[in-house]
Nucleic acid binder design. Sequence first.
DNA 1: CCGACGGTTCGGCGCCCACCGAAGGATCGC
DNA 2: GCGATCCTTCGGTGGGCGCCGAACCGTCGG
Lengths: 252, 252
Amino acid sequence: MDAAVGLAAWAGLLADRTRASFCLALLDGRAWTVGELAKHAGVALSTASEHADRLVAGGMLAQRRQGRHRYLELANPQVAALIETVAAAHPSARNGTGTPVTTLAAAHKRRNLAFARTCYDHLAGYLGVAIADAMVGNGFVTRTHGTALTPRGVAWLGQLGVDLGKPGRRAVLRDCLDWTERRSHLAGVAGSEICRHALAAGWVVRIGSGRAVKVTPVGERALADQLGLVIGAAGTDSPGAAHAMPAGARRR
Amino acid sequence: MDAAVGLAAWAGLLADRTRASFCLALLDGRAWTVGELAKHAGVALSTASEHADRLVAGGMLAQRRQGRHRYLELANPQVAALIETVAAAHPSARNGTGTPVTTLAAAHKRRNLAFARTCYDHLAGYLGVAIADAMVGNGFVTRTHGTALTPRGVAWLGQLGVDLGKPGRRAVLRDCLDWTERRSHLAGVAGSEICRHALAAGWVVRIGSGRAVKVTPVGERALADQLGLVIGAAGTDSPGAAHAMPAGARRR
DNA sequence: CCGACGGTTCGGCGCCCACCGAAGGATCGC
DNA sequence: GCGATCCTTCGGTGGGCGCCGAACCGTCGG
């Protein structure tokens, strides 16, 4: 009886078309913003916000607030597995429309596809995290007391032709949590300038119209020379890559 | 989006306290009448009848009409496994402070349930998990690559008089998450046959009308002989003997 | 300072649905 | 035939909740 209440409450979280749509979308293992989820489900932002509240309160989703964004993801792998199981098993799974339910395994594959992309105005994905790590390894960035550029790092940027100018309101360097890698990459003015330079110098080029980018041979050499960073042959691009991104949030 | 509708519809079947109560009750693998379910859930007969309609229409339950009775049971083992999984995993463990007003009788009932019960058509609870572990320990079941019956396990079952027959659609052996022990017990055809044999051979007998069972002296001897499994002084329906439950033996 | 933008809160609307009691079968035992 | 039992159908009621737009707030970048 008591168990029935709990079971009903849990099922109730999924028992709404919009919330179910959220959860299915989040099965890709990434974190989506409220706005992205709203657009995906076709509801107003306010509605999506309220649904997000309920899903978080019910323990189905976890959230992380970053700046003016609110990122939502499945609370844990157990929840993901459970949703997958239910979604795969419910009778109408054979919907015939050829839209199979996304599995976590498939999502991992897709992760490799989008191994490099832009996030706002800086680099993200595997590439972004790798660059961040390499800069720490080379002593250009320190993370001992928060994340900051070292004098050597400033010099390195200057040698690339990047002038950070006078300190303004925007942080010079900031960590930005990468939701495919679940680790931080570099944002802020420096992150933005690194991205700008990488594009300008032909280290990376955009793939299609989305946020995905790929590393050119020139870029591979430059990254190896400049940062000792060896990029594996990972980045296979495919039309699916851009499609895998949450709609919206592509700016600039 | 299409999938979201289906998922929401399916979850919606469980997203009601009364219907969830039905499904949980039906996890004992028996067929219940509408009247029994109504009384169990504490709703009017008419209400129960309507809920039964919805659950049948949604593919969760199957029905069989016999004379003036309408028997309801879970549609298939897959549905049973799904419900059990969801019930075991839903995060109502921290369901809030005040809830459970438990009577002593209810507590005893629950202890019996926790000790040994049927789950759909196989054994669950402490007993179910212990049997599963013992079968692994005796080399009858392997869990190296998923859970499977070994040749020795097949032979053991044969010696009990259990013939698994030809492989059909249903898995021969499957793990089923136990919601009191939070560990896996054995389901599938083999799990079902073990339960059937245990009841037929008088190893266990049902307590009252619910899912709870208790191990008989014959069963104790048989489990010790066959599996080297020593069960403490059996679960019983008498309040005084509740202490006999192998409290120290729980978990591992 | 400003405007742009993502998100939240609030009031309100409308619909869905869980529930009940009463009336109406259907089936059993006699 | 009769009454008893089990169930279904139907009308009505109440509450919950999904949805929206408008107002508001905090953050970002200039």
